[in-house]
Design a binder for these strands. Structure first.
Length: 325
DNA sequence: CATCAGGGCCCTG
DNA sequence: CAGGGCCCTGAT
Protein backbone atom coordinates (compact mmCIF):
# COMPACT_ATOMS: atom_id res chain seq x y z
CA UNK A 1 0.00 0.00 0.00
CA UNK A 2 1.27 3.46 -0.89
CA UNK A 3 1.44 5.62 2.21
CA UNK A 4 -0.25 9.00 2.35
CA UNK A 5 2.45 11.56 2.98
CA UNK A 6 1.61 14.06 5.68
CA UNK A 7 3.72 16.99 4.59
CA UNK A 8 2.47 19.81 6.76
CA UNK A 9 3.97 19.92 10.23
CA UNK A 10 2.76 22.25 12.95
CA UNK A 11 4.04 22.25 16.50
CA UNK A 12 2.41 23.25 19.75
CA UNK A 13 3.94 23.43 23.21
CA UNK A 14 2.40 21.77 26.25
CA UNK A 15 3.50 22.26 29.83
CA UNK A 16 2.45 19.20 31.85
CA UNK A 17 1.96 19.38 35.58
CA UNK A 18 5.03 18.57 37.66
CA UNK A 19 6.39 16.04 38.42
CA UNK A 20 6.09 14.35 35.04
CA UNK A 21 7.70 11.12 33.93
CA UNK A 22 7.53 11.35 30.14
CA UNK A 23 8.53 7.86 29.04
CA UNK A 24 6.59 5.93 31.67
CA UNK A 25 3.52 7.94 30.68
CA UNK A 26 3.66 7.68 26.89
CA UNK A 27 4.95 4.12 26.75
CA UNK A 28 3.54 1.11 28.59
CA UNK A 29 5.88 -1.89 28.33
CA UNK A 30 3.09 -4.40 29.04
CA UNK A 31 0.95 -3.23 26.11
CA UNK A 32 1.38 -5.24 22.96
CA UNK A 33 2.65 -3.35 19.90
CA UNK A 34 0.23 -2.17 17.21
CA UNK A 35 1.26 -0.61 13.90
CA UNK A 36 -0.36 2.74 14.70
CA UNK A 37 2.37 3.87 17.07
CA UNK A 38 6.06 3.75 17.80
CA UNK A 39 8.09 4.71 20.82
CA UNK A 40 11.70 5.48 21.54
CA UNK A 41 12.96 7.23 24.67
CA UNK A 42 11.78 10.83 24.62
CA UNK A 43 9.45 10.40 21.64
CA UNK A 44 6.18 8.71 20.72
CA UNK A 45 4.70 8.51 17.23
CA UNK A 46 0.94 8.02 17.09
CA UNK A 47 -1.62 8.19 14.34
CA UNK A 48 -5.07 9.54 15.02
CA UNK A 49 -8.31 10.05 13.19
CA UNK A 50 -9.49 13.34 14.60
CA UNK A 51 -12.54 15.19 13.34
CA UNK A 52 -12.36 12.92 10.31
CA UNK A 53 -8.79 13.89 9.47
CA UNK A 54 -5.97 11.37 9.49
CA UNK A 55 -3.16 12.86 11.55
CA UNK A 56 0.36 11.93 12.45
CA UNK A 57 1.34 12.97 15.95
CA UNK A 58 4.72 13.04 17.57
CA UNK A 59 4.80 13.78 21.23
CA UNK A 60 8.30 14.76 22.23
CA UNK A 61 9.97 15.33 25.57
CA UNK A 62 11.58 18.75 25.89
CA UNK A 63 11.79 19.03 29.66
CA UNK A 64 12.64 17.21 32.86
CA UNK A 65 10.67 15.46 35.56
CA UNK A 66 10.63 18.56 37.74
CA UNK A 67 10.28 21.06 34.87
CA UNK A 68 8.20 19.27 32.26
CA UNK A 69 7.73 20.47 28.73
CA UNK A 70 6.37 18.65 25.72
CA UNK A 71 6.27 19.44 22.02
CA UNK A 72 3.30 18.08 20.13
CA UNK A 73 4.05 17.88 16.40
CA UNK A 74 0.93 17.54 14.29
CA UNK A 75 1.39 16.23 10.74
CA UNK A 76 -1.40 16.57 8.20
CA UNK A 77 -2.06 16.61 4.45
CA UNK A 78 -3.15 20.22 4.42
CA UNK A 79 -2.67 22.96 6.98
CA UNK A 80 -4.81 23.01 10.10
CA UNK A 81 -6.52 25.99 11.63
CA UNK A 82 -5.46 27.45 14.92
CA UNK A 83 -8.73 26.31 16.41
CA UNK A 84 -8.16 22.74 15.19
CA UNK A 85 -4.66 22.67 16.62
CA UNK A 86 -5.85 23.94 19.96
CA UNK A 87 -8.56 21.30 19.93
CA UNK A 88 -6.21 18.38 19.24
CA UNK A 89 -3.81 19.77 21.84
CA UNK A 90 -6.53 19.64 24.49
CA UNK A 91 -7.38 16.11 23.42
CA UNK A 92 -3.77 14.98 23.81
CA UNK A 93 -3.63 16.63 27.22
CA UNK A 94 -6.67 14.57 28.15
CA UNK A 95 -5.50 11.28 26.67
CA UNK A 96 -2.07 11.41 28.31
CA UNK A 97 -3.33 13.05 31.51
CA UNK A 98 -0.84 15.87 31.10
CA UNK A 99 -2.70 18.11 33.52
CA UNK A 100 -3.15 15.49 36.21
CA UNK A 101 -2.28 16.61 39.71
CA UNK A 102 -0.67 13.61 41.39
CA UNK A 103 1.06 15.38 44.26
CA UNK A 104 -1.41 14.23 46.88
CA UNK A 105 -1.07 10.63 45.73
CA UNK A 106 2.72 10.81 45.76
CA UNK A 107 2.93 12.49 49.15
CA UNK A 108 0.55 10.07 50.75
CA UNK A 109 2.13 6.86 49.55
CA UNK A 110 5.78 7.55 48.82
CA UNK A 111 6.83 5.72 51.99
CA UNK A 112 4.38 2.84 51.59
CA UNK A 113 6.16 -0.50 51.75
CA UNK A 114 4.88 -1.85 48.43
CA UNK A 115 3.89 1.30 46.56
CA UNK A 116 6.74 3.52 47.77
CA UNK A 117 9.49 1.97 45.63
CA UNK A 118 7.27 2.15 42.53
CA UNK A 119 6.55 5.82 43.17
CA UNK A 120 10.25 6.49 43.66
CA UNK A 121 11.06 4.77 40.37
CA UNK A 122 8.28 6.24 38.21
CA UNK A 123 7.33 9.47 39.96
CA UNK A 124 5.04 11.54 37.74
CA UNK A 125 3.87 8.68 35.54
CA UNK A 126 0.24 8.78 34.44
CA UNK A 127 -2.15 6.24 32.97
CA UNK A 128 -2.95 7.01 29.37
CA UNK A 129 -4.92 6.02 26.33
CA UNK A 130 -3.34 6.01 22.89
CA UNK A 131 -6.61 6.93 21.25
CA UNK A 132 -10.35 7.32 21.37
CA UNK A 133 -12.96 5.15 23.06
CA UNK A 134 -13.61 3.42 19.74
CA UNK A 135 -9.88 2.84 19.17
CA UNK A 136 -9.68 1.22 22.58
CA UNK A 137 -12.79 -0.90 22.13
CA UNK A 138 -11.35 -2.44 18.99
CA UNK A 139 -8.40 -3.63 21.05
CA UNK A 140 -10.49 -4.98 23.91
CA UNK A 141 -12.48 -7.04 21.43
CA UNK A 142 -9.35 -8.47 19.85
CA UNK A 143 -8.01 -9.35 23.30
CA UNK A 144 -10.92 -11.62 24.09
CA UNK A 145 -10.15 -15.25 24.57
CA UNK A 146 -6.96 -15.12 22.56
CA UNK A 147 -3.26 -15.38 23.40
CA UNK A 148 -1.45 -12.06 23.01
CA UNK A 149 0.37 -13.26 19.93
CA UNK A 150 -2.90 -13.82 18.17
CA UNK A 151 -4.30 -10.46 19.27
CA UNK A 152 -1.28 -8.79 17.70
CA UNK A 153 -1.84 -10.70 14.47
CA UNK A 154 -5.53 -9.82 14.32
CA UNK A 155 -4.82 -6.13 14.86
CA UNK A 156 -2.16 -6.21 12.16
CA UNK A 157 -4.55 -7.85 9.68
CA UNK A 158 -7.28 -5.32 10.42
CA UNK A 159 -4.98 -2.33 10.07
CA UNK A 160 -3.61 -3.61 6.77
CA UNK A 161 -7.05 -4.22 5.33
CA UNK A 162 -9.08 -1.30 6.66
CA UNK A 163 -6.58 1.20 8.02
CA UNK A 164 -4.82 3.96 6.14
CA UNK A 165 -1.05 3.95 5.93
CA UNK A 166 0.42 7.34 6.80
CA UNK A 167 3.97 8.57 6.46
CA UNK A 168 5.23 11.24 8.81
CA UNK A 169 8.38 12.00 10.75
CA UNK A 170 10.22 9.30 8.72
CA UNK A 171 7.86 6.56 9.95
CA UNK A 172 5.06 4.69 8.24
CA UNK A 173 2.17 3.88 10.55
CA UNK A 174 -1.46 2.90 10.09
CA UNK A 175 -4.36 5.07 11.09
CA UNK A 176 -7.51 3.35 12.34
CA UNK A 177 -10.56 3.24 10.11
CA UNK A 178 -13.68 5.30 10.75
CA UNK A 179 -16.37 3.28 12.53
CA UNK A 180 -18.87 3.98 9.73
CA UNK A 181 -16.54 2.32 7.23
CA UNK A 182 -16.14 -0.81 9.29
CA UNK A 183 -19.83 -1.03 10.13
CA UNK A 184 -20.55 -1.68 6.43
CA UNK A 185 -18.08 -4.54 5.99
CA UNK A 186 -19.63 -8.01 5.48
CA UNK A 187 -18.92 -10.34 8.38
CA UNK A 188 -17.39 -12.89 6.03
CA UNK A 189 -14.72 -10.38 4.92
CA UNK A 190 -13.74 -9.83 8.52
CA UNK A 191 -13.58 -13.53 9.19
CA UNK A 192 -11.06 -13.91 6.39
CA UNK A 193 -8.73 -11.86 8.58
CA UNK A 194 -8.83 -14.69 11.11
CA UNK A 195 -10.57 -12.73 13.81
CA UNK A 196 -13.06 -15.57 14.23
CA UNK A 197 -16.28 -14.88 16.12
CA UNK A 198 -14.92 -11.46 17.08
CA UNK A 199 -16.03 -10.34 13.62
CA UNK A 200 -19.57 -10.08 14.92
CA UNK A 201 -18.49 -8.14 18.00
CA UNK A 202 -16.41 -5.72 15.97
CA UNK A 203 -19.33 -5.03 13.65
CA UNK A 204 -21.76 -4.55 16.49
CA UNK A 205 -19.46 -2.28 18.44
CA UNK A 206 -18.86 -0.13 15.34
CA UNK A 207 -22.53 0.46 14.76
CA UNK A 208 -23.37 2.90 17.59
CA UNK A 209 -20.28 4.93 16.72
CA UNK A 210 -21.15 4.98 13.03
CA UNK A 211 -24.62 6.21 13.94
CA UNK A 212 -23.30 8.77 16.41
CA UNK A 213 -25.21 7.19 19.25
CA UNK A 214 -22.20 7.28 21.51
CA UNK A 215 -20.69 10.64 22.32
CA UNK A 216 -17.37 10.10 24.04
CA UNK A 217 -17.09 13.73 25.14
CA UNK A 218 -20.50 13.59 26.76
CA UNK A 219 -19.66 10.32 28.49
CA UNK A 220 -16.57 11.88 30.05
CA UNK A 221 -18.83 14.21 32.02
CA UNK A 222 -21.00 11.46 33.46
CA UNK A 223 -20.62 9.75 36.82
CA UNK A 224 -18.58 6.53 36.91
CA UNK A 225 -21.62 4.39 37.67
CA UNK A 226 -23.36 5.77 34.59
CA UNK A 227 -20.25 5.37 32.41
CA UNK A 228 -19.93 1.77 33.48
CA UNK A 229 -23.56 1.07 32.76
CA UNK A 230 -23.29 2.46 29.24
CA UNK A 231 -20.07 0.58 28.51
CA UNK A 232 -21.60 -2.70 29.65
CA UNK A 233 -24.62 -2.07 27.44
CA UNK A 234 -22.37 -2.25 24.37
CA UNK A 235 -22.38 -5.65 22.75
CA UNK A 236 -19.06 -7.34 23.35
CA UNK A 237 -18.09 -5.32 26.41
CA UNK A 238 -17.96 -7.16 29.73
CA UNK A 239 -16.34 -6.70 33.15
CA UNK A 240 -12.80 -7.17 31.93
CA UNK A 241 -13.00 -4.63 29.13
CA UNK A 242 -14.64 -2.22 31.57
CA UNK A 243 -11.73 -2.66 33.98
CA UNK A 244 -9.43 -1.25 31.30
CA UNK A 245 -11.77 1.40 29.94
CA UNK A 246 -12.79 3.05 33.20
CA UNK A 247 -9.31 4.22 34.20
CA UNK A 248 -7.71 4.62 30.77
CA UNK A 249 -10.54 6.23 28.83
CA UNK A 250 -12.55 7.88 31.61
CA UNK A 251 -9.79 8.58 34.16
CA UNK A 252 -11.47 6.91 37.10
CA UNK A 253 -8.35 6.34 39.16
CA UNK A 254 -10.18 4.83 42.10
CA UNK A 255 -12.12 2.34 39.99
CA UNK A 256 -11.03 -1.18 40.84
CA UNK A 257 -13.64 -3.91 40.76
CA UNK A 258 -11.99 -6.61 38.74
CA UNK A 259 -8.45 -7.85 38.16
CA UNK A 260 -8.09 -10.02 35.05
CA UNK A 261 -6.53 -13.43 35.59
CA UNK A 262 -3.16 -12.84 33.95
CA UNK A 263 -2.67 -9.59 35.88
CA UNK A 264 -3.74 -11.37 39.02
CA UNK A 265 -1.08 -14.01 38.55
CA UNK A 266 1.60 -11.38 38.17
CA UNK A 267 0.45 -8.98 40.89
CA UNK A 268 -0.14 -11.83 43.30
CA UNK A 269 3.44 -12.97 42.96
CA UNK A 270 4.75 -9.44 43.25
CA UNK A 271 2.66 -8.50 46.29
CA UNK A 272 2.04 -11.76 48.18
CA UNK A 273 4.91 -13.76 46.74
CA UNK A 274 2.63 -16.60 45.64
CA UNK A 275 3.47 -18.80 42.67
CA UNK A 276 2.00 -17.59 39.40
CA UNK A 277 0.30 -20.99 39.06
CA UNK A 278 -1.85 -20.38 42.15
CA UNK A 279 -2.52 -16.65 42.41
CA UNK A 280 -4.34 -15.07 45.32
CA UNK A 281 -8.09 -14.83 44.84
CA UNK A 282 -9.39 -11.64 43.32
CA UNK A 283 -11.04 -10.69 46.63
CA UNK A 284 -7.70 -10.64 48.39
CA UNK A 285 -6.12 -8.37 45.80
CA UNK A 286 -9.07 -5.99 45.82
CA UNK A 287 -8.91 -5.85 49.59
CA UNK A 288 -5.18 -5.14 49.48
CA UNK A 289 -5.66 -2.20 47.13
CA UNK A 290 -8.48 -0.88 49.30
CA UNK A 291 -5.96 0.95 51.47
CA UNK A 292 -4.97 3.17 48.55
CA UNK A 293 -8.39 4.76 48.30
CA UNK A 294 -9.15 7.13 46.55
CA UNK A 295 -6.38 6.04 44.22
CA UNK A 296 -6.86 2.26 44.10
CA UNK A 297 -6.46 1.99 40.34
CA UNK A 298 -3.59 4.46 40.21
CA UNK A 299 -1.80 2.48 42.90
CA UNK A 300 -2.20 -0.73 40.95
CA UNK A 301 -0.96 1.00 37.82
CA UNK A 302 2.22 2.16 39.58
CA UNK A 303 3.00 -1.27 41.00
CA UNK A 304 2.23 -2.93 37.69
CA UNK A 305 4.20 -0.55 35.50
CA UNK A 306 7.13 -0.45 37.89
CA UNK A 307 7.47 -4.19 37.50
CA UNK A 308 7.39 -3.97 33.71
CA UNK A 309 9.92 -1.15 33.51
CA UNK A 310 12.29 -3.07 35.77
CA UNK A 311 11.71 -6.11 33.60
CA UNK A 312 12.59 -4.07 30.52
CA UNK A 313 15.83 -2.91 32.10
CA UNK A 314 16.84 -6.31 33.40
CA UNK A 315 14.59 -9.25 32.48
CA UNK A 316 12.70 -10.99 35.27
CA UNK A 317 12.64 -14.73 34.54
CA UNK A 318 9.23 -15.59 35.99
CA UNK A 319 7.63 -12.69 34.15
CA UNK A 320 8.90 -13.88 30.77
CA UNK A 321 6.85 -17.05 31.19
CA UNK A 322 3.67 -15.03 31.64
CA UNK A 323 4.15 -13.12 28.41
CA UNK A 324 3.46 -15.32 25.48
CA UNK A 325 3.96 -12.60 22.94
C1' DC B 1 -1.99 -36.84 14.83
C1' DA B 2 -5.57 -34.99 18.49
C1' DT B 3 -6.55 -32.03 22.18
C1' DC B 4 -6.56 -27.79 24.69
C1' DA B 5 -6.60 -23.25 26.53
C1' DG B 6 -5.86 -18.56 25.61
C1' DG B 7 -5.21 -11.13 28.83
C1' DG B 8 -14.13 -12.80 27.56
C1' DC B 9 -18.61 -12.38 26.51
C1' DC B 10 -23.25 -13.73 25.37
C1' DC B 11 -26.99 -16.58 26.02
C1' DT B 12 -29.55 -20.13 28.11
C1' DG B 13 -31.68 -22.83 31.74
C1' DC C 1 -25.58 -17.56 38.68
C1' DA C 2 -23.30 -21.61 36.43
C1' DG C 3 -21.87 -23.49 32.22
C1' DG C 4 -21.62 -24.24 27.23
C1' DG C 5 -20.28 -22.31 22.86
C1' DC C 6 -17.66 -19.45 20.00
C1' DC C 7 -13.04 -18.81 15.78
C1' DC C 8 -8.49 -19.80 15.42
C1' DT C 9 -3.65 -21.09 16.64
C1' DG C 10 0.46 -22.55 18.86
C1' DA C 11 1.82 -25.62 22.51
C1' DT C 12 1.92 -30.25 24.13
Amino acid sequence: MQPVKLKVKQTVVIIPTSPFNFDATVFKPAHFPTPDSFWQPGKRWQTALWRRRPLGLIIENKGTIAKPKVHLHVFSQTGLSKEFLENIKQEIIWRFNLHLNSKDFIERFKTDKILGPAIKNLKGMRPMTHGSLYDFLVITIMLQNAPVRRSIQMMQNLFEKYGKLLEFGSKKLYCLWPAEKLAKVPEQDLRKLKVGYRAKNLLRISLPFAKNEIDEMELRQKLPTEQKKILLSLYGVGPQSVSYLMPDIFHNFDFLEHVPLWERKILSKKIFNTGTENPAPEEKLLKFFGKYKPYKQLAMHYIWEDLWWRHKQSPIDWLIKEVRA
